[in-house]
Design a protein around this nucleic acid. Structure first.
Lengths: 220, 220
DNA sequence: TCCCAATCTTGCGTGGCCCGCACTTTTTTG
DNA sequence: CAAAAAAGTGCGGGCCACGCAAGATTGGGA
């Protein structure tokens, strides 16, 4: 659907991918419809026409299935990054690759936003969403390292991690706010990262209010 | 244990905190001893001398219990940040607060490193560790916003997120490598963030090897 | 001092999830 | 086309999260 499903794969492999994709899609659809808590593994399996046991051969939890969409969508990023022109500065390459990736998908459907909010709440709760992002981050770090040609591995990880930070922050902002577009925010944040932290000047410690936020429940 | 347990709390409240702490501690200890998968909720509860049902009144999973240590240890960071001197540039304040926080704890015990590695693997798998970090991140973002006195809220979130990125990367590097100290790495990464991304210069696309990393299982 | 109301703990029962194992069905390969 | 490799499936077990409805504890008046 997103990119080419290379036809040079064995039938076996193709069926596997298709099954996985179907399961993930069903999981996401159902979760958006009824809320994740009202979706049993059995429902997803039935929807796809497969045994519940089989579902667990592909995913070890429904949360993972839902998030797998998030992960898979980023498969193109590696290629996008490696495909950037030769002499381009590393950071520019990274930024462009990320932006490209997210442009390709277009602004997500506004109709779902409310449902998405709820769903994200539940996903954050289970930590799976972050886990998915972490997976993306690892691949990104490796790709960056490759592209940078043996640069400091730690710095590559830091860069990947920061980029994902920007993405996450932009995304949360997008679906928590009304109508603010995603891409411009993302670009702004990436530029901010490039510039470095000192941009935010402060130190004018203001009034000291009671303190509301407690270290407690994960809320999005 | 870390900071003052304010004695101006009702007995009730003190007992609650103590119970929570005891459960978290027991969970961590057992997990380090036997590996998380060999620890049942019942074991933790028994260890503390409490019913399994009660455990679930405090934590909704054993993973959460283990990670709660991670979260609680950061309670001091807010105060540390707000206590920085008046005129100090925002970023410097943040950096110092974070470094202070982690200095206070000293280098973690080398003896546990192996066990820690295993444990982290399992925690990452369940996404709970990341979730804990996310909790810290939210508080940090708020504190930064307060300290910055109404600066752009998005940027505050980005800053908090980036800082946590650095912490995570440094930490993973610490417990995956042999003997590299934690604090210096962390400081270096934070400085890197301050400078901005372009430090990493690259673009010398090297040989194109087969590609080993697949978007698959979370590995640490 | 004592008692009541708020709060915490606990046992029980339910529904669900994850996964190992063994068996059937499908695809691949020689 | 037959044997081998790999997926799908049913079953069963262990564990877990949580609602509910008693008990046990604590705190603050009277």
């Amino acid at each position: 659907m997103t990119s080419l499903d290379p036809p040079n794969l064995s039938l076996r492999e193709r069926k596997k991918r298709e099954a996985r994709r179907a399961l993930a899609q069903a999981a996401l659809r159902l979760a958006l419809d009824r809320g994740l808590e009202n979706v049993r593994v059995e429902d997803i399996a039935t929807e796809v026409g497969v045994s519940p046991r089989t579902f667990n051969n592909y995913f070890s939890s429904k949360e993972q299935a839902v998030c797998s969409m998030v992960v898979d969508r980023h498969e193109g990023m590696r290629e996008a990054l490696l495909a950037r022109p030769e002499g381009e500065p590393l950071w520019e390459s990274v930024k462009q690759a990320v932006v490209e990736q997210y442009s390709r998908e277009g602004e997500p459907d506004r109709a779902y936003v409310t449902r998405l909010r709820e769903l994200m709440g539940q996903l954050m709760l289970r930590g799976e969403f972050l886990n998915a992002h972490a997976a993306v981050e690892r691949v990104l770090a490796e790709t960056i390292a490759k592209r940078a040609g043996g640069a400091d591995h730690l710095l590559c990880r830091l860069m990947a991690s920061s980029v994902e930070s920007a993405v996450r922050v932009a995304f949360v902002n997008w679906f928590m706010s009304e109508g603010e577009p995603f891409l411009p925010t993302l670009e702004r944040l990436l530029d901010e990262l490039a510039t470095g932290m000192p941009t935010l000047t402060g130190g004018t410690t203001p009034k000291t209010e009671p303190d509301t936020t407690t270290l407690g429940e994960p809320l999005c």
